[in-house]
């Protein structure tokens, strides 16, 4: 693993930890943060979030990571699992990195 890959993994772990914190503290998910599997579904039988929470998830992620999520990016695929939320933030990192 080269330095760039190590940095990517570290960043990904950091983002996952913060997404988990958003879910337990802002969305009141009643699990220990480390028990929230990256592949668990946000809605329905997964973490049990609902349509009102969907808005709160996006607003909380925007505030936590100081990113702006455009409406067209906030579709169902992004809100599928904890991991897809991490992907969203990582994709934003990559996009803003390109601009630099």
């Amino acid at each position: 693993m080269n330095a760039e890959q190590r940095a990517y993994v570290a960043r990904r772990n950091d983002v996952l930890a913060r997404v988990r914190r958003v879910l337990t503290e802002e969305l009141h998910v009643r699990r220990e943060p480390e028990e929230i599997d990256p592949d668990v579904a946000l809605f329905g039988t997964g973490l049990g979030l609902d349509s009102v929470d969907a808005i709160e998830v996006l607003l909380s992620i925007e505030a936590e990571f100081s990113v702006a999520i455009p409406d067209e990016a906030a579709g169902r695929s992004v809100l599928r699992t904890v991991g897809t939320l991490v992907d969203l933030v990582m994709a934003h990192d990559a996009a803003s990195g390109d601009e630099k």
Binding site: L27, V52, D53, I55, E56, L59, E62, A63
Partner: peptide
């Protein structure tokens, strides 16, 4: 708190109702 941190436009949709 949500208004203070994120502004009125992005207030907490879960706390409001």
């Amino acid at each position: 708190e949500s208004v203070r941190q994120r502004g009125l436009v992005k207030l907490s949709a879960t706390a409001f109702p």
